[in-house]
Simulated scan of single mutants.
Amino acid sequence: MRRLPVLLSTAVLLVTGAFVGAGGARAEAPAGAVPAAGRSREVVLVRDIEIPVPGQPAVRAWLVRPQGTAAGLAGVLDLHWFEPGRASQDRSEFLAEATALAGRGVVSVLPQLTFPWAGDPVGDARDRAAVTAQLDAVRHAYRRLLAEPGVDSARTAVVGHDYGAMYAADLTAAEPGLRTAVLLAPDATWANWFDQYWLQLPEGEQAAYRAVFAGLDPVDQVGRLGAGAYLQFAGADRFVGAETRAAFAAAAPQARVSLYPREEHDLGATGVRDDRIAWLADRLGLHG
């Protein structure tokens, strides 16, 4: 079951520039200056920030960037996954990755998402309103990234996993200047997981519920990115199957797609991360 959202935080250790928690799980990290991972020893700043969103509570986020105010920095917005009971299902998911990328001239913003993490779907138009409100918060997080000194607005990307990937796809439609997205294990439609894991609607009500999200489903947004979309899927994923992968392939024929046959939905293998970083490095022109 994927419901009953739980946000976890564990003790933090700093190991060669990567943030890990007890037992090896990635975790929340203290704000401050840390060395970048990898060959670069550039100092990286990690700040805990709040992003104002009109009509909503401020969004908590990590801001990760190289020290200093050099121009020509790339920008990445990281949107985490949803998996109750997993310590990485919050804004910490991509924190180690963002720290490593900062050593290559990247500023990252990692916002904490709240729907459906902190609120259950209810089965009507209020769910569309909740998705739209979360998307508005994500959009303000992206605008906060663009406002960071040194960030080149022409060299930005969004990376998302699971529900985070779905919000990432919708963000690219809301922000036409955002032309690069990495989507890890997204579902094609908002209604599917909401219904399957929370609502269990009668068959006669399912079509009407899907219609609630008309024009908002992630699968309808990725095609506009062309070759600027990179989809990473897991072959052993119990939440995202061949039918969903086929829907995205049909909607975005120019997108790059990687299928990792032995991976599960968390897509946590080092090779998956390395493929993602290599693709971003090429798209964003990263040094190092």
Score class of each variant (00 low, 15 high):
residue 247 A to W: 01
residue 90 D to F: 00
residue 145 L to I: 03
residue 272 V to L: 04
residue 165 A to F: 10
residue 210 R to N: 10
residue 50 E to I: 00
residue 210 R to G: 14
residue 159 V to H: 05
residue 98 A to T: 05
residue 33 A to I: 13
residue 211 A to H: 09
residue 215 G to K: 08
residue 125 A to T: 13
residue 27 A to T: 15
residue 97 E to I: 01
residue 36 A to Y: 05
residue 257 V to T: 14
residue 12 V to F: 10
residue 106 V to A: 10
residue 261 P to Y: 06
residue 168 A to P: 05
residue 138 V to P: 01
residue 135 L to M: 04
residue 267 L to W: 09
residue 38 G to L: 05
residue 54 P to N: 05
residue 115 F to A: 04
residue 170 D to N: 07
residue 60 R to T: 11
residue 114 T to D: 09
residue 36 A to E: 04
residue 174 A to G: 01
residue 223 G to Y: 03
residue 117 W to I: 01
residue 194 F to I: 00
residue 99 T to Y: 00
residue 40 S to N: 02
residue 250 A to K: 14
residue 179 R to V: 12
residue 248 F to N: 08
residue 124 D to E: 09
residue 249 A to R: 15
residue 130 A to K: 12
residue 83 E to N: 14
residue 111 P to E: 08
residue 28 E to K: 00
residue 93 E to F: 06
residue 119 G to C: 01
residue 116 P to A: 03
residue 142 Y to K: 01
residue 63 L to P: 01
residue 146 L to G: 02
residue 171 L to C: 09
residue 245 R to N: 01
residue 36 A to C: 11
residue 106 V to E: 07
residue 200 Q to Y: 00
residue 40 S to Q: 03
residue 187 D to M: 12
residue 159 V to N: 04
residue 68 G to Q: 12
residue 55 G to H: 04
residue 137 A to M: 02
residue 213 F to M: 09
residue 51 I to N: 03
residue 263 E to L: 03
residue 81 W to T: 02
residue 223 G to K: 04
residue 196 Q to T: 15
residue 101 L to T: 01
residue 223 G to Q: 05
residue 244 T to E: 13
residue 169 A to F: 02
residue 185 A to F: 02
residue 85 G to S: 04
residue 77 L to G: 12
residue 123 G to H: 07
residue 257 V to R: 15
residue 247 A to F: 01
residue 218 P to I: 08
residue 222 V to F: 04
residue 26 R to Q: 13
residue 6 V to W: 03
residue 13 L to N: 06
residue 158 V to K: 07
residue 252 A to S: 14
residue 77 L to A: 12
residue 139 R to H: 08
residue 218 P to V: 09
residue 97 E to C: 03
residue 45 L to P: 00
residue 40 S to G: 09
residue 97 E to N: 04
residue 5 P to V: 08
residue 134 Q to D: 04
residue 97 E to R: 14
residue 5 P to W: 01
residue 83 E to Q: 12
residue 118 A to E: 15
residue 199 L to R: 06
residue 280 L to C: 04
residue 108 S to E: 06
residue 2 R to Y: 09
residue 48 D to M: 05
residue 231 L to P: 12
residue 20 V to R: 15
residue 211 A to Y: 01
residue 45 L to C: 09
residue 241 G to S: 05
residue 236 A to T: 08
residue 22 A to G: 14
residue 111 P to Q: 07
residue 201 L to R: 13
residue 171 L to V: 10
residue 222 V to I: 15
residue 27 A to M: 03
residue 109 V to P: 02
residue 144 R to C: 09
residue 258 S to A: 15
residue 197 Y to L: 13
residue 168 A to E: 08
residue 242 A to S: 13
residue 179 R to Q: 14
residue 36 A to V: 03
residue 119 G to K: 13
residue 100 A to I: 00
residue 222 V to S: 03
residue 34 V to E: 02
residue 75 G to F: 03
residue 48 D to S: 15
residue 52 P to H: 10
residue 209 Y to K: 05
residue 225 L to Q: 09
residue 123 G to C: 07
residue 114 T to Q: 12
